[in-house]
Amino acid sequence: MTLLRIEDLNIDYVTLRGRLRAVKSASLTLGGGEWLSIVGESGSGKSTLAMSIPGLLLPPGRITSGRIIFRGKDLTSMSGEELRRIRGSEIGVVFQDPLTSLDPLRTIGDQMAEAIMEHRSASSKREALEMASAALESVGIPGDRVKYYPHQLSGGQRQRVMIAMAVMLKPKLLIADEPTTALDVIVQANIMRLLKSLQQRMGMSVMLITHDIALAAEVSDRIAVMYAAEIVEEGPIDQVIENPLHPYTEALIKSTPDLWREKTLYTIPGNPPDLRSPPRGCRFHPRCHKAFEPCKAKEPRPTRLRGRTVACHLYG
């Protein structure tokens, strides 16, 4: 069953210096209970794509065309008020930096209860606080910590609080944007394990945004790889990792340092392009070792290939 379907989505940033396409003709589907990770470098458009779903695009970002169908409704045509009601209740969001997402002057319980009341999911403040405390327990924090202020918690605990807030109203979809980038490795592993168990326990879908393909590989069902505002490859995680179709995916996998693989120093030449003036043809071709004539001239179209999608001239 499809929970979310993104169709040919384009997102532009219009600034004084000109127009920049941050997401270009993106199409994706996410099934109920499925974990999809979007992997890419900074500037690849992965966060922009994810944030456009719950209507959290920051100006000057704007959806210029395309549709985002969530549970049968098109989110791009909804008003700010309708989207606000969906955020929190049906779509939960977790950000990279938990400290800036919490009000330092109010207890975490207070902030959680407010969010619950906002969505009229509790009849009284007391009930809301009880729900908050239960939500904390579910992420491994003692329930009595509702009385704590954000600064009394460690970085990892704050991120757990953010996760508790995102999932306490039992959303169908959780969007996690680099949730562990600011955290240490051991804390990161624990947070990822928590997210995985929440997903399985609650049967929700997860969209993880990350630059770390290894992190995605350990938890995802499917993966989408973005490069220079485009989704270049998408498919089931095992197939993509073991047999990457797009040369960028392949290079990314080869160049990621990994403890459980043979030691190699595989390097990708060049830099990611400037989105204000992307290369003609395939955007990866200047760095691609398999590039041939058509890559320089023509943009590759996404091709379906046995349940996978790839945008590369090597495949038709």
Partner: peptide, 25 residues
């Protein structure tokens, strides 16, 4: 060992140590 166990890997079914530790530094 905990640091090694926490390092993410791209290798499917990698034989990682199982050790998991709680808390933060």
């Amino acid at each position: 060992e905990a640091l090694i166990a926490a390092a993410p890997t791209i290798v499917p079914r990698a034989r990682k140590p199982r050790l998991r530790i709680k808390g933060e530094i």
